[in-house]
Design a protein around this nucleic acid. Structure first.
Length: 465
RNA sequence: GGCCUCGUGGCGGAGUGGUGACGCAGCGGAUUGCAAAUCCGUGAACCCCGGUUCAAUUCCGGGCGAGGCCUCCA
């Protein structure tokens, strides 16, 4: 089955075919490094990591190039630097903010089971490319200088707005926002703006300044993937204006018909039924999830699985129940799977993913494998092995998911010795048919959150769910 | 106002022009000293109104409802 992907440009699922049959090139908008990444940021990281894994599987790891940028020049970063490190010189303060945030982002993405992209360019390393691109746009008549800025002239591009379905003539200019007087059209956007002395800046033909947000991605994608490439991804909210403007810049500067063939966008997250926002106080960072959220320390694999339970274009309502369900599923996968490096991932799962990353269907296939793996007689390379290999392929680290550990850490710890002693005492009582006593011991442990299970090999225990 | 999604059992969540996956929870049974776990089995849903069709949850139109973007927010 060929890989099919939903393309925002055409609003249909299309068969995927790379421009160069031997090389797939993908670009995804990465984080602006000024604060901890939240679970909304985690979604594109996970979704496109999964696509990356699928592409590597189909085309070979050496034939896929995945670029995810790091935006380290941004007014929010400046503000954060001034707030957190007022004593440092601005550039040092900025570096402090960007470097620590970037390290945190990497730690978070690693914990979520995301492979590192092949390239993670930082915007500040590509200022000369951006300047060149802007000069090209000016030379071709797609940009103009006004009010100390260089602006993109949206009216110079006949099909501006195609990705988002916003045609310039249909937009009510200034309907909701005051149009800057120096703009020729309300949708014209900044390519380069001047910097004050207390702002970071680079020299350019238009004075000391800094790039607009959109030009970064145009410059960095071209640097690694050329003028036209295969897949461009990001969150739904980036369709307009960010991606629309990227397309305008890249196509007009390079004189090409398309920037990327396939544009993919992931849906948004809500938390317990409400929009996630700082003002509502329901902001959940990845860091929080991994250290403590709702009383539990969630393994990254649980968060990843909870994310994949829903198709990437659908909205997700992030909730405790969702995470618990994910943890329960992964725990049984871990329990019944068998490590085997020589086995390939399930073909049924690959096919589910090949249909526009249908992860819910892929998960249903995992459950089918689980059913097989539960059967008493397991062959080497059988269902239990395939289950293991498939989870690994999906980036789910089963080893770190252990319900006992997860649930127990949240409760008052009872030492293993205490439990062991209680089990022995109960065993003696049961042998003597003193069931009142044995039940008393069992209830006592239950009150502490420990559940006993009598099996053919004796008594084992688990943390109560 | 413009543009774009979405509305499936108690919850999560695929899919399809013709008896509606899968998971969690529930229920019944086996098992157990009683339980837990496990195993076997099982009830339960396609927002409303029109239209197209032999047939619509699936296609088209309208309505109602939820959400997003148009404010450098994934």
């Amino acid at each position: 089955m060929p890989l099919r992907l939903f393309n925002t440009l055409t609003k249909t699922k299309e068969d995927f075919a790379p421009i160069d049959p031997k090389k797939v090139r993908m670009y995804v908008c990465g984080p602006t490094v000024y604060d901890f990444a939240h679970i909304g940021n985690a979604r594109p990281a996970i979704v496109f990591d999964l696509l990356y894994r699928l592409l590597r599987h189909e085309y070979g790891a050496e034939h896929v190039t995945y670029v995810r940028n790091i935006t380290d020049v941004d007014d929010k970063i400046n503000a954060r630097a001034l707030r957190d490190f007022p004593a440092l010189p601005l550039n040092d303060a900025i570096r402090k903010v960007t470097e620590t945030t970037e390290a945190q982002y990497h730690a978070d993405a690693d914990a979520l089971g995301c492979l590192r992209p092949d390239h993670e360019p930082r915007a500040t390393a590509f200022i000369p490319d951006m300047v060149k691109l802007i000069a090209q746009l000016l030379a071709r008549g797609h940009a103009y200088e006004a009010g100390g800025e260089v602006l993109f002239d949206t009216q110079s591009m006949p099909d501006y707005g195609r990705l988002s379905g916003r045609r310039l003539d249909e937009q009510q200019a200034g309907a909701r926002i005051e149009v800057d007087a120096h703009k020729k059209h309300a949708h014209d956007f900044v390519l380069w703006k001047q910097s004050a002395d207390n702002e970071p800046g680079w020299t350019s033909p238009w004075g000391r300044g800094r790039p607009g947000w959109h030009i970064e991605c145009s410059a960095m994608s071209a640097a690694y993937l050329d003028k036209t490439f295969d897949i461009h991804g990001g969150g739904l909210d980036l369709i307009f204006p960010h991606h629309e403007n990227e397309i305008a810049q890249s196509r007009c500067a390079h004189g090409t018909d398309v920037m990327a063939n396939v544009w993919m966008h992931n849906g948004f997250l809500q938390v317990e039924g409400e929009k996630m926002s700082k003002s509502l106080g329901n902001f959940v960072t990845i860091r929080q999830l991994l250290t403590e959220w709702n009383g539990f320390k969630w393994p990254g694999a649980v968060a990843r699985f909870a994310m994949l339970m829903t198709h990437y274009r659908q909205p997700i309502n992030w909730s405790l129940q969702r995470l618990e369900e994910a943890a329960i599923a992964l725990d049984s996968f871990r329990h019944f799977s068998m490590e085997d490096e020589d086995v390939l991932p399930s073909q049924a799962v690959i096919e589910a993913l090949s249909d526009d990353l249908n992860t819910p269907l892929a998960i249903a296939e995992l459950h089918k494998l689980l059913e097989e793996a539960k059967k008493p007689i397991q062959q080497v390379g059988g269902a239990a092995s395939v289950l293991w290999a498939t989870c690994k392929f999906l980036g789910l680290d089963l080893e770190e998911v252990n319900l006992n550990r997860l649930f127990r850490a949240a409760r008052d710890a009872v030492s293993d010795e205490d439990i062991h002693r209680a089990i022995e005492a109960r065993k003696a009582a049961r042998t003597a048919k003193n069931f009142a006593e044995s039940d008393r011991i069992r209830d006592e442990l239950l009150a502490k959150g420990i559940v006993l299970k009598d099996g053919p090999q004796g008594t084992t225990w688990e943390v109560k769910r």
